[in-house]
Design a protein around this nucleic acid. Structure first.
Lengths: 190, 190
DNA sequence: TGACGTGCCTATGGGAGTTAGGTAAAGTCC
DNA sequence: GGACTTTACCTAACTCCCATAGGCACGTCA
């Protein structure tokens, strides 16, 4: 029997595809092994069990998200930067729902995950500088923005919006609320 | 052997406690049966398996949340109402993390779940009326508010905030951003 | 007091994650 | 090019979970 030629990277990649198709809970070692043409125990040579696999998915997702946001914000400032980052954030989550869920559900904070999270925060902080915010108030505002984007995307991907109302417009409303919210808070403290 | 005297209600209540202690994924029929002094199959007399139990947890959580928000908003308007609702929302999620997770993850939309969701939306819409918002813009704003609260609470309960920064202040920042965001959007369209 | 409904039980099956130990393919050194 | 080492993958087996089927005994009501 020829070897499948797996690596940790190819296993995690396949798991990501599985997560985007069947949801994060649909990622089982049995199904993943089936897709890779291998028996479940063989995966343990590349990944240390299901929790480790989930952590790796989360780290990969965080890194991709951070890179996406950095690229989106490049060369922009103020409202334009905020809007670009927000839409890039949402686009990533919609395109990779499984990875996004994984990245949210991580409890084990590895160094790589922390590093990716730091990059995301850095991008938002750079945007906030355009609103005259820095220091501790900027950190609080970062949390607020992150919360809003995260919540919206989660509700949207998990079909939490009951009403038949265009999500695009709702998202635009959210972004402009954040924009004027930042001007209100920033204007008071800057 | 004396009977345990279970009812559907007592089973769901115990499951809610379990969810708040061990997380929603920690709610297994085996563990639940152990807590109730009963064998796992006995639970099927009161609940139709694990998915049904999760749905019931979600419905109960949604009803409790709606009632909490209604009580918090009573007699208030404008910024005060917004702040009261927001803080009540966060307090409920922090006090009942398991139920809150369940209420978020529901995919099966029963009539009761829809009704509870409708009540939550109604409370927020009433608050928005104080900002001069109604109709479709109010619905979009409702989604925005819900997203922000939901995202914050999720990040907080799942320890998504890496930095050692007081969450209370971050939340206050979020609420005031929403407040000025609503004034910005509301003033433009009302 | 006897029959009935039903709450809870044991027994059983199937599927998932995980570990232990074996086999054969791929790489390495003389 | 042949022998040794490494390692990718396998089968077998264990545990824990959800779920179903069928049986026993408790409580009620005529």
């Amino acid at each position: 029997m020829p070897r499948a030629g797996l690596t940790t990277d190819s296993v995690v990649t396949a798991a990501g595809e599985l997560a985007d198709e069947h949801g994060l809970d649909g990622v089982t070692l049995a199904r993943l092994a089936g897709r890779l043409g291998v028996r479940p125990p063989s995966l343990y040579a590349h990944v240390d069990g299901l929790p480790d696999l989930r952590t790796r998915l989360a780290v990969r997702g965080a890194e991709q998200l951070a890179a996406t946001l950095q690229a989106a914000a490049a060369g922009l400032a103020g409202s334009q930067a905020l809007s670009a980052v927000a839409h890039a954030y949402r686009a990533y989550a919609l395109a990779h729902p499984g990875s996004y869920t994984a990245l949210q559900r991580t409890t084990s904070n590895t160094d790589e995950a922390a590093e990716a999270a730091r990059r995301v925060v850095a991008v938002v902080l750079a945007v906030l500088a355009g609103y005259g915010l820095d220091g501790e108030p900027a950190l609080h505002a970062t949390r607020a923005i992150r919360s809003a984007l995260h919540g919206f995307v989660l509700l949207e991907t998990q079909h939490g919006f009951g009403l038949p109302l265009a999500p695009d417009e709702s998202f635009t409303t959210l972004v402009s609320m954040l924009d004027s919210g930042l001007r209100g808070v920033g204007g008071a403290s800057a």
